[in-house]
Amino acid sequence: MPNALIVFYSLDGDVRFLARTLAKELVMDSMELELVKPHPTHGFMKYFTGGFLAATGATPPLRPLAHDAADYDIVFIGTPVWNSRPTPAVRTFLKGADLEGKRVAFFTSYGGSDVKTHRILNSLVPGAKVVGNIGFKMPLKMDKEQCSADLVRWAKELLNN
Rank of each mutant, 00 (worst) to 15 (best):
G135Q: 01
H42D: 03
P88H: 14
N133I: 00
E34L: 07
M138A: 04
A155Q: 14
L94G: 14
Q146V: 13
A4C: 04
G78F: 01
F8L: 00
L18H: 00
T41D: 09
K141Q: 13
G96F: 01
K156G: 14
R20G: 08
P40H: 06
A23L: 15
T41K: 09
T117M: 12
M45I: 09
V90P: 14
R119D: 15
A69H: 11
P38G: 02
R85W: 00
M31D: 02
K95C: 01
V125L: 07
P80N: 15
L65K: 08
T41H: 15
T79K: 15
S113F: 05
L151G: 06
L22I: 13
S30Q: 05
A105V: 03
A69N: 07
L18Q: 00
D71S: 11
A69R: 09
Y9R: 01
T49N: 11
T49C: 08
R85V: 01
K141S: 07
G96E: 10
G132S: 07
A128R: 02
M45E: 06
M142S: 08
T87Y: 04
R20L: 06
S84R: 12
P86T: 02
G132Q: 06
D14H: 13
E34P: 05
D143V: 10
L11G: 11
Y47R: 13
D14K: 04
A66D: 08
